[in-house]
Nucleic acid binder design. Structure first.
Length: 304
DNA sequence: CTCCAGGTATTTT
DNA sequence: AAAATACATGGA
């Protein structure tokens, strides 16, 4: 018996645009994009499932391809998908702000309906940041895949493997040498294992972080951990905790996008960056996401 | 060979 | 407090 649920969608939503973002030219091992749908595997309390997400009749449909979920599983996945594609936000105020800026107004057309694509799992998000620090994205995705395929689990369906990000319990036990073999640097290996250890010891998790009183204290808790600087803290807070006002200072891609849009001339001009983002108060994270989006160009679609 | 990539910690001024 | 530097490694 196949389970299926549907989540209603508000306006300014374009599924095709979201899917394109997921499949924008990098090799992310944690989901698979197909025409008009995406599949992703989950491990909920050691029960593995595979779901397919598609857009039907004005709603987002989640269909279980593998696994028979109980009610709590369904709630979990529904929340996860809502967070993944930021289904609860009304983009109208953001688009109004974009429209008021001549060099950004085009985004409301070109990326119309693109939702902030999140990383709901905090450990995965932190691990991804540590992997991605100071290396190019293609290489980062390669390393992520090695990590996941070596230490993660998978669900098999129609001769394809759908990988699940390894749990902190697993990563925590790895000797540094094993991660070195996957081309982690010594530091990255140390940082990742330490973060995994913090999760296992319940010093850090999404609940603890969310329970802190404000943004500043969340940043502080994260940056207190070795290997997590201001960039990672902001990245994780926007991607995983949906903080609306994150600016991942120093981000190479963001700086390039700002230069491309002639918002800054030099990468060190933090004053201009702050002045620029001040105009988008409350939507900084979304704007950063859209600026990142500009770094991947959609090829001309050939339609006859 | 050089420079950069969705940085961070450490050391030196 | 701010600036320089070491770290690691693939790809252009």
């Amino acid at each position: 018996m196949q389970t299926e649920i549907s989540i209603p969608i508000s306006q300014h939503f374009n599924w095709e645009e979201c899917l394109w973002y997921l499949d924008r030219g990098y090799d992310d091992c944690i989901y698979k994009v197909y025409p008009e749908k995406v599949r992703r595997a989950f491990d909920i309390n050691r029960v593995k499932m595979l779901v397919e997400i598609s857009h039907r009749n004005g709603s987002l449909s989640i269909r279980w391809l593998v696994g028979e979920p109980i009610e709590t599983d369904i709630n979990y996945i529904q929340k996860f998908v809502s967070a993944w594609f930021d289904l609860d936000t009304d983009l109208t105020p953001f688009y109004r702000l974009l429209s008021s800026n001549p060099s950004l107004a085009y985004m409301t057309e070109n990326y119309a309906g693109l939702r902030f694509v999140g990383m709901p799992d905090l450990f995965e998000s932190l691990a991804w940041c540590i992997i991605g620090q100071q290396i190019n994205l293609h290489f980062a995705y390669k390393i992520k895949r090695r990590l996941v395929e070596n230490y993660g689990d998978f669900v098999e369906y129609e001769n394809a493997r759908y990988w699940i990000f390894p749990a902190p319990e697993k990563i925590k036990t790895l000797p540094i040498t094993e991660l070195r073999a996957l081309q982690f640097s010594n530091k990255k290996a140390e940082y990742l294992i330490d973060v995994a250890d913090a999760f296992v010891r319940n010093i850090l998790n999404k609940e603890i972080l969310s329970a802190l009183p404000d943004f500043a204290s969340r940043q502080k808790m994260l940056t207190a951990i070795c290997g997590i600087g201001i960039w990672t803290a902001n990245y994780v807070l926007m991607k995983s905790l949906k903080e609306p006002s994150c600016i991942p200072y120093g981000d190479a891609g963001l700086l390039n996008a700002l230069i491309n849009h002639k918002i800054i001339k030099l990468k060190g001009d933090s004053q201009s960056i702050n002045e620029f983002f001040n105009m988008f108060s409350g939507w900084e994270s979304y704007l950063v996401f859209y600026l990142w989006r500009t770094l991947s160009e959609r090829k001309n679609e050939s339609k006859d």
